[in-house]
Structures are given as C-alpha cells and as structure tokens.
Amino acid sequence: MIEFRDVHKHFGPLHVLNGIDLSVAEREVVVIIGPSGSGKSTLIRTINGLEAIESGTLVVNGIAVHAEHVDVNRLRKDVGMVFQSFNLFPHLTAIENVMLAPLKVRKLGRSEARDRAMRLLEKVGIPEKADAPPARLSGGQQQRVAIARALAMEPRIMLFDEPTSALDAEMIREVLDVMRDLAREGMTMLVVTHEVGFAREASNRVVFMDGGRIIEDSPTREFFAAPREERAKQFLSKVIRH
C-alpha cells in the first residue's frame, strides 16, 4: 500500500530523511517513534505530498508520489491526515469542517454530506457539538472533529502526526479510543506518537527512527519485549519512565 525506496530529503544542512526503506501493507497499523528531530513527522508528511522528496521512490496506493505531474489531489482523497495542532477551520462549525471536503472535492449534495458528517461525529462521540465553532470545543473534542473530517473523505490510509501531543491526559484517552476503534476496523494507519500504550495495544509494527534513518522496524510484540537496537532501548526506557 505504501512503499518507500531509498528516500532522501534535506532541510538545509540537515539530512532529515536518509535512505528510508519502508513498506506498509493494507490494514496494517504502524507506529513511528523516535526522538524529536528524528524525521518522523517529515516521513509521514511525504506520504500525502505535504513534503516533497529529493530522491528515491515513494508509491502510495499505486500512485508514484515522487513523479512529476502527479495529481496530488487525487492521492490526497485516499489519504487522511490528522495534525498535532488540529488545524480545524475556525470560521466553520464542527460539522461544516467535516462537510467541506465532501462538498467541494467529492461534490456530494448538501443533505447527503450532512448526514454522513453527522454519522462521523457520532462515531467519534460528539454529535451534540455539531453546530459549535471550534473555539468552543476542548482540545480533545477538536481533535476528534479533525479525525471525523479526515474520515469524511473515506480514505484508505490515515496519517496521524503526534495527534495527542497538544492534549491533557484525560483528553488523550478520548482521542486514543477513537484511534483504537479505527485500527480495529482495519484502517491502514501510520501514527507518529509518544504514546507507548497505544503502540503496544493497537499497532502491528513499531518503527524507530533517529537522525533521519529507520533504526529498527519490528513487530510490536517483539519490539517491546526486546528492542534489538541500543538506541531504541535507551529511548524506550526514557519514554516509559514518565
């Protein structure tokens, strides 16, 4: 479903992606962990073309993202993304946020879009906030609306870029619950997170990155039982302690 081959990218002198090889199969849930600045966010942002790659190949859902003249908008219809800072549109209500792309990109009718948006808000557990503007929602609620918004395009892949880093402890749970349900339903997911608990319960694989490289890529159970790499071990011990 997603295939990285020897992908490189620099930010100035920084080699943020240094020879990435990674493949993700359909219905797989992959958690990407690693210290900040290790290239995790950049990695998943290349998948829907928010970041361009400099060399190597990247094929997502049969579309070569790296190729010139590729229609990224077609690609993005199949790839949903959830951001650390929610990025809800402040001038639209919760349900309008969810309806926007189905109306404008998929050209659905208003009532159909509304029905579907409502179902998604029910799914993420906040139908009662449908007509509230984002400013009136808590962080956890905003992030759940953002997940519903991404799901509204019926993506085949969901990308999560540190979806809970901006949230308080109790709100983290409500967001992770929604993500867990999604994983159980068989959505293909790539999740950048520090939530080890979520990785342990909900993911199939853990990818550990440092310095723009993938240091370790193991099945979840193996990774937590005994990380093969020293750096992963150190990182894990630090993350779990607090």
Binding site: N48, L50, V72, N73, R74, R76, K77, V79, G80, M81, F83, S85, N87, L88, F89, L100, A101, K104, V105, A146, R149, A150, M153, L159
Partner: peptide, 20 residues
Amino acid sequence: GQIEAARSLGLSYAQMLRYV
C-alpha cells in the same frame, strides 16, 4: 496548518483559497 489541513483533505489550491 490551516493550509496543510485543507490540502491534505484533497482541496485544490483554488478551493483552499476560496473556502479556507
């Protein structure tokens, strides 16, 4: 982030300008 969110929903550049 607003622009990125709109683009990752598949809105074209013109749609992103117009609606977001």
